[in-house]
Design a protein around this nucleic acid. Structure first.
Lengths: 237, 237, 237, 237
DNA sequence: GATGAATGAGATTTCATTCAT
DNA sequence: TATGAATGAAATCTCATTCAT
């Protein structure tokens, strides 16, 4: 048999591996005034639609209809629906990072309590502002691997900040916060998240009072002295 | 019971409900041995698939493939995908109702604490058993109006049970639990839910220690004496 | 920071890697009478459409319209347009393999010449029968890597058969066909292919006379004695 | 000249010709330095892209990206993708016309053989230089009606030149080349085309040896004396 | 001349659901 | 009961082409 043949195409091989093609997801592109305006319209429309119906119930068509633009235009700015969601998520997580840094040192006195209360309020406000997106994010199933990782990181950073702020004023325990405290902070954070989720999902709860309760629970969850033996100990027992 | 709740979603109500005229759902039908077996296979397949991919990512096709049956057969037992989900959800909520009744009277002593701890453990176990379904349920957007209402009711009943159990031993306050306590209970319940959600979603947390923390927080959240003035007061201040 | 977290989802990880899903490309499936009929209709429609317009100019829509079936049905039998094409190509290549085996031993006399002529005729007939598909195949750019490889293999096998048949009767050269002969056979084969391509593409050539010419060229291309020194030598010069 | 050809495609005529009203093609316009530069960049980009992926797999976007210019600019120079292709094809066909005129008179001696060999070499070189375009052209389905006609004309001219050159030295047949010779020339030309196509498509063949084989076949295909009775006859049988 | 932006028709593919056997 | 087959609405995404600046 012919020894010469190498039955694999060299040159014209390229046509199969279509590299992403359609998209140039934009945002890298330099946008002029008009472009920026359209981008903003799309982001706003996405936020509104997602908030009203959730990620998968919303079609790209819904978004562009609300943004008063065309189907093709959408793909000029985002490579798909998820991409749009990620952009919105980025914003929300960014704000979360900001209030992470704002978590106060909670001292064991009225001032500390007030500071904590202020922060809880702020958390609730921010959550509700970005509720549409955060609500969707909290559904692990739905977001991509990368976004999920991003979000968890933000979550854990926040838990860390809470741990630090809540335990900073303990004079009698120089060794700093322990694992217990971190788990406590994480649990409290989940509580904050979910309560606000409920509210954003339409369950009518008295927001002011709820904020007070959340503050109280957080405050009580971190006793002045650290707990021993895996069980909490409130000072006076 | 919490007077606050309005268990109907405002915003996210809109998800598309096309294809309504499902075909004579069966289940009313008297099933013989073979029929019951098929039904069970479908339920198991549904649970497994939902757990692996979430409600909307699973197609009827996935379910019947796993159940080793045909497409047509599915519609002999369920009127649609959501119908299958509801059946699974019913089971999970049923178990939740059971542990609702098991919530102990938590006395202000070691025995009370132990009882509470036992219950928290049980809650976690049950949650994780039905995690696939509960996880999906906790995504308001996704389930139908009726199921959402059902679930919220279960939730509020549970919050109520917690309120009662945690405040029953207060001798000095004969007027029973107040609104504060109910909100506190609800918040704590959300914490329980979400922490278990995290675990079920694959975030590796030390389950034993976490259960201890949750117990401690719950315990601390309900001080022996009721709080006055909208702010919590831990006995020792 | 919390040491516990492993921010990667275990359980619900599955929803991303949608395994092919829609498709079950059929042909594996056991088809009943009706299914086989539909499959045949699709294949016939595909052949006709491809013949009329070429692979990429034909849409799935064209095929189902001609096959008098629905869009969804198409995907019950083929995973996409290319899949349909491959099925058709398989048939064509199969026939090519058959005539590969039929290539005669061409002796240096009238009988040999007649045998060769008969085979050339048969090649032309088969080519024209499957012209729609073979024409498309001969456009490397268009077919997938695997199909291309398959086709080239068939090609080289055919070239090999020609080499053998054309040189078998050489008594004076016991060492069999050389590299020269193989290249000659390949070149002649390409000639056969392309001439028939022209005809199938609508260029009106006298088929009978052309078959005679092709036979003559093939015959002349393989002189009774092998050529030396890289240049052909017809025995009698 | 071959009387047989009808250079109009019957069957494969149908490819969709939507979007006809292209925008004032330019090229009529007088181009200044900058304009000429842009035009050249576009042509080069087109050649490269077409070579890598084939006509229909390349989008205008691919071309302008490679040419480092904008989408709008493209339509300043070409009315559409096909227009760009035609421009490139024109160049290739032009070179083909040039070597058409260079086909030598092949005498029945070593000198004739050498002249033929030289020309075959040159043909191969030119083919491979313009391979991207010629390869696409040889896919009838793909090019427009006019281009196809143009190309066929070039083809037949070339066949005619070969006929003339190969039969010019026959002294014993004063009546010139017959229909047989023209068909032979056409067949040989198709062989040349397709072998070079294979090479350009990535099949590794020894180019030098192949050129030798092609020369030999061509030489052998035209015997010194014309053939009679529809069957080839090499003078000495 | 050049280019960012917009457009919308159309192609591909999926999937819940129904139906005939 | 069970199931293979069919359906068609709808979603996603692409891309040639036009336009305003």
């Amino acid at each position: 048999m012919l020894a010469v043949h190498t039955p694999s195409r060299q040159a014209p091989a390229g046509q199969r591996q279509r590299y992403s093609r359609g998209g140039i997801p934009a945002q890298q592109r330099v946008l002029r005034a008009q472009g920026r305006k359209t981008l903003r319209r799309l982001l706003e429309a996405g936020l509104a639609e997602f908030g009203a119906r959730g990620l998968h119930a919303v079609s790209v068509d819904d978004v562009v209809r609300r943004a008063q633009t065309s189907h093709g235009t959408f793909y000029l700015y985002f490579s798909n629906k998820e991409d749009l969601f990620q952009a919105l998520l980025r914003d929300a997580l960014h704000e979360m990072k900001i209030i992470t840094d704002e978590f106060p040192v909670v001292t064991r006195n009225e001032a500390g309590r007030m500071a904590l209360r202020g922060w809880v309020h702020r958390f609730c406000d921010i959550y509700l502002t970005h509720a549409s997106v955060l609500r969707i994010f909290s559904q692990a199933e739905i977001v991509g691997e990368a976004a999920w990782r991003d979000g968890l990181q933000t979550l854990f950073r926040l838990a860390e900040a809470i741990t630090t702020g809540m335990t900073a004023s303990r004079q009698d325990v120089p060794d700093g916060p322990g694992r217990h405290d971190e788990l406590t902070a994480l649990a409290c954070l989940m509580m904050l998240e979910r309560v606000n989720y409920l509210i954003s999902a339409g369950v009518r709860l008295p927001r002011e009072e709820m904020a007070d309760r959340l503050t109280a629970i957080l405050y009580a969850a971190f006793p002045a002295a650290p707990m021993a033996g895996g069980r909490g100990r409130t000072g006076t027992e």
